[in-house]
Amino acid sequence: MGIIWNADSMLGWIVMAVNFGSVILYGAMGEILTEKAGHLNLGVPGIMLCGGISGFASTFLYEQSTENPSKFVMLLLGLVSSVVAATLAGLIYAFLTITLKANQNVTGITLTTFGAGLAKHFGSVISAKSGSTAIRSAVADDVFNAKIPFLSTDLGVVGKLLFNYGFLVYLAVILAVLLQLFFYRTHQGLNLRAIGENPGTADAMGINVTRYKYSAILAGSAISGIGGFLYLVINNVQWSTALDIEGMGWLAVALVIFATWKPVNAIWGGYLFGFLSKAGAYAPTFITGITISQNIWSMTPYIVTIVVLIAVSFRMKKESRPPAALGTAYFREDR
């Protein structure tokens, strides 16, 4: 057994890590926003699937139905439809858990099952309609995977490493920083965190708990939905592997814990998760003389999360803990 250095393979691995990491990052940002409102949404994988299928279906069907698809319409269609579908899925969760005070875990899991079924169904309907299983939207691929000219091609390794992604990857980083500022520098962010810690206190301070919860969950779902669509984008907008979004969704839930509920931590955490989740494809090129199963490699992000959970609980820092009221329904006149 030995280890060999392979620069090309490493470059490919890192680029893949950032792409897949961004998918997980979107999912995690949405979940962080939701959890800060005190709601544990295990429906994130389902919501991401809804966003993915909707973004794919609209761009694919638009491309099929028009002679010269407009790139601008394509851009709008992909984003808006994935956001709308994910928000609607989030609305189901929000209505059940906020207004009807249903159990959050059960509702979330159900939503994931629902999202997976929905994606499978529409995926097969569209495949059947177009008579092929390898369905793909080439124009959407062009639009969402457009690289920055010159920077991505003329700067050698640096260009390939830093400027070789579609715009959604950069948007994720910006969004994470904005979310961090929102949570820790604004009144609304402070109010939202208070709700996640102790809704009774927030309510007594005159904060509209229900409105904040709905806003956070819907906005969070929308962000997660973009993640689902981004998964299709980095796979060249072809449907074949789209159902793997669910696995990405579970990684996103794990990433929230890994990042200790801080969006900025989720950036590098997401890339690390992306790196580890692609280890099965790339790591073997660095190792000679021994074969390690793909399945072992794909376990690594979860193992890392478990290790982090253990480390965090040892540190016992109160700021690194989940929002105190996470998972509980709030009713003002409860006695």
Binding site: R185, T186, H187, Q188, L190, N191, R193, A194, E197, N198, G200, T201, A202, A204, M205, G206, I207, K318, E319, R321, A324
Partner: peptide, 24 residues
């Protein structure tokens, strides 16, 4: 007491306050 444990005294005081800007 209706206080948020992980917040500072100042943060607890300004909670839910009506304000014009977003920034604290």
């Amino acid at each position: 007491f209706k206080l948020i444990d992980v917040f500072t005294a100042a943060e607890n005081i300004i909670l839910g306050e009506e304000h014009t800007g977003m920034r604290i």
